[in-house]
Design a binder for these strands. Structure first.
Lengths: 204, 204
DNA sequence: GATAAAAGTTGACCGATCGTCATTTTGGGG
DNA sequence: CCCCAAAATGACGATCGGTCAACTTTTATC
């Protein structure tokens, strides 16, 4: 009887094995997607990157789409945690905007540096995914906009559109930032923040 | 001898046939993509939507990706024509911004109404394509920003980022607009224009 | 028009992938 | 040690992707 058994804390061998297999598939998928591109990769390519059999793949995911979404959701989850940590107690709208954008661009740069972004040289297109985490981030940004912008500064503004616009700005500018070699997070962040702050007329 | 033969104006029978086949493939592809979704459709599905043989597909396109890009490029080309027509002689930055956004949102609504947008109910993701037309639109927007914004109003602004931000705003807000049932083009257009105009401090 | 070259179409074919499922292996409880 | 449930395995039929030799249609030449 091991300590783990006594404590009844450690997962069973089965659970550990399942977690390891799932992790192996995701890790292999990340590499294969980066090597071959999303469209060109097959489920077989992914499973060949592990020591599992082809049938086992389908015990964990229905398709490569689902693997891709899991990878995206994972990134979104980590970003969301950072976001909540950084922006939870922003008092003013401007502070909230600056923190959010700074967090996002720093996150992007980190993801790229750690090879977690599928950056193909030819990169003809990326997938936009609507995972639960992605939707949650959108909702949180919108409700935070409603909270910090409130009805005082710009009561007529459509909070849904403002959230969409902010996300669009961050997304596109973030992409351009990554294409530049310098990865000047502060410049990108300040550019977007200034645009939004001045755009809603909410200067501190 | 037909009138066309005499006038030597009509394209040859071969050219007409090729154009018709290409058009048949694109038309079938649009319907199949809409029905099955991009990932699920196969080249066979597309070709089954025409009266051509499977091998013929490859005389026109290398893959379904190329078909999809051709569809996207087609939309982009039509939008670009509208854009140049509407915005060619905008004198001020504000006028340029308002015309551009209005053209874009009206175009989006028209595309949706005429069934040219791949709008799946579940729509888990869309593809972002970097076709020549798409790149041309980005370059034109940026150079127009440089021209009309000039060095007078906001000399420090990064025109590349401003173009990216504007496109991001239009893209995301446009998507939200389509999700709403009303398709209030004027509201979406005015929202985005106000945001950008105030954001760069270029009020007329 | 007759003929031949060129261009285009066809569908069978091969290698590979997809998703399934009967079989085997592994893990946990008694 | 035995047994059952959970999980892994890989073979299998159906399908797809891309090629290509044979065939049909169009154009050019006389």
């Amino acid at each position: 009887m091991t300590v783990a058994d006594i404590l009844e804390i450690a997962e069973s061998k089965r659970e550990r094995s399942k977690a390891a297999n799932r992790h192996a598939i995701l890790t292999a998928a990340r590499r294969v997607f980066a090597d071959l591109g999303y469209d060109a990769t097959t489920v077989r390519d992914i499973i060949r990157g592990t020591d599992l059999a082809s049938g086992t793949f389908y015990n964990y995911f229905k398709s490569k789409e689902e693997v891709f979404e899991a990878l995206q959701d994972d990134s979104a989850h980590r970003f969301r945690a950072l976001l909540q940590e950084q922006c939870a107690r922003a008092r003013t709208f401007e502070e909230f905007v600056r923190r959010t954008l700074d967090t996002y661009f720093r996150f992007l740069a980190d993801e790229l540096a750690s090879g977690r972004i599928l950056q193909r040289p030819d990169a003809p297109f990326t997938h936009r995914v609507d995972t639960p985490e992605m939707k949650a981030i959108f909702r949180e940004v919108r409700s935070e906009i409603e909270r910090t912008l409130g009805r005082g500064i710009a009561p007529g503004l459509d909070p849904d559109y403002l959230a969409a616009a902010s996300i669009g700005i961050a997304r596109e500018v973030g992409e351009r930032m990554l294409l530049r070699r310098d990865n000047d997070v502060d410049h990108a962040s300040a550019f977007c923040a200034d645009l939004i702050i001045k755009g809603v007329g909410a200067h501190a």
